[in-house]
Computed example of a mutant assay.
Amino acid sequence: MPPAPPVFRFAPSPNGRLHLGHALSALTNEALARRFGGRLLLRIEDIDITRCRPEFVEGIEEDLAWLGIRFEPGHRRQSAHFDDYAGALAALRQRGLVYPCFCSRQEIRNAVGAREAATGQPWPVDPDGAPLYPGLCKRLDPDDAARRIAAGEPHVLRLDMAAAIAALRQPLRYAVFDEGDVRHSVPVAPERWGDVVLARKDVPTSYHLAVTVDDALQGVTHVVRGRDLEAATDVHVLLQHLLGLPTPLYHFHHLLLDDDGQKLAKSRDSRSLADLRAGGIGAEEIRRQLGFA
């Protein structure tokens, strides 16, 4: 029996229209899937139900069709699969690797500021530049925490990073591949993220948990995404091992930058593909500009 074809996926969030950076990622996935004789899936990552809107889902589908990218019929929408993420979260909680945190962002900032003032040293930050969580709720009485959750108090669920790493039998690594399928091994350092959030009271999963579960359930073998997500892969590989899930191969493509040297982003109002299309730019011109003529 011949081996199963590799599986690639493009997974945008419908909280705005796609821009050139998204086009680069989608076209890179398409090119590599074609090169390796693989399947190409579309996944809509809409766990943030307050910001993700149906019109943006329609816009994503419209933009990708305009670019001429063909995906397998149907696509997975994360908002329809919260039970899958809840099951993974429950498995981690049963192992004592998750704890509730009731701290507001302001309380965390205050605690970090106080500790910096006391030590005269800067508090460590994660790869995104956010202060590591200082563990204010890590030793809460379980009965008190349960009472506060039952009362509806806002909270998040955090991964106990130290306990999670201690549960591993050996240091973790994952494989990165290039356009020629040359692979090299990369060490994992999830501790640099601290006690990451895995779920919130109003959003029952996080990006880290959802993407890990989805890739396994969809049989994704090759994850192709921007270099801005390279550091986050450490958390995903850790979760894969804790949950007994396979680890895909990874490829990190370059990022498109604006005139200020910042990566293109919806939050920076980067010009959308819809705007470019309305301005008379064709899909073939976009492909040519991005190196996919």
Rank of each mutant, 00 (worst) to 15 (best):
I69C: 03
I69H: 03
I69G: 02
I69W: 08
I69R: 02
R70G: 02
R70S: 14
R70I: 01
R70N: 08
R70W: 04
R70A: 10
R70D: 05
F71I: 01
F71D: 00
F71S: 03
E72F: 11
E72N: 07
E72C: 02
E72H: 00
E72V: 08
E72K: 06
P73V: 09
P73R: 10
P73F: 12
G74L: 10
G74Y: 12
G74M: 10
G74D: 07
H75V: 00
H75F: 13
H75P: 00
H75T: 03
H75Q: 07
R76G: 00
R76Y: 09
R77F: 07
R77A: 07
Q78K: 00
Q78A: 08
Q78D: 12
S79H: 00
S79T: 02
A80Q: 06
A80N: 03
A80R: 06
H81M: 08
H81K: 07
H81Q: 01
H81P: 01
H81D: 00
H81W: 01
F82M: 01
F82S: 00
F82D: 00
D83W: 08
D83V: 03
D83R: 00
D83F: 08
D84G: 12
D84N: 05
D84T: 04
D84A: 13
Y85F: 15
Y85V: 12
Y85W: 09
A86N: 02
A86P: 04
A86F: 02
G87R: 15
G87V: 09
G87I: 11
A88M: 11
A88W: 08
A88Y: 07
L89Y: 06
A90Q: 15
A91H: 06
A91E: 13
A91F: 00
L92T: 07
L92C: 10
L92N: 06
L92P: 13
L92I: 10
L92E: 04
L92Y: 11
L92A: 07
L92K: 09
R93A: 12
R93Y: 05
R93H: 11
R93D: 06
R93I: 03
R93E: 15
Q94N: 11
Q94C: 14
Q94E: 12
Q94L: 10
R95I: 07
R95K: 15
R95P: 08
R95Y: 03
R95N: 09
R95G: 08
G96W: 01
G96T: 06
G96I: 07
G96V: 06
G96E: 05
L97K: 12
L97A: 14
L97N: 09
L97G: 03
L97V: 05
V98K: 05
V98Q: 03
V98D: 02
Y99S: 04
Y99D: 03
Y99I: 00
P100G: 14
C101N: 13
C101P: 14
C101Y: 04
C101W: 06
C101A: 10
C101V: 10
F102V: 02
F102Q: 05
F102T: 01
F102S: 05
F102D: 04
C103G: 11
C103T: 14
C103F: 07
C103H: 12
C103E: 06
C103Q: 11
S104Q: 09
S104D: 10
S104H: 13
S104G: 15
S104M: 09
R105N: 15
R105A: 14
R105K: 15
R105S: 09
R105I: 14
R105E: 13
Q106E: 15
Q106R: 15
Q106H: 11
Q106S: 14
E107Y: 09
E107K: 15
E107C: 08
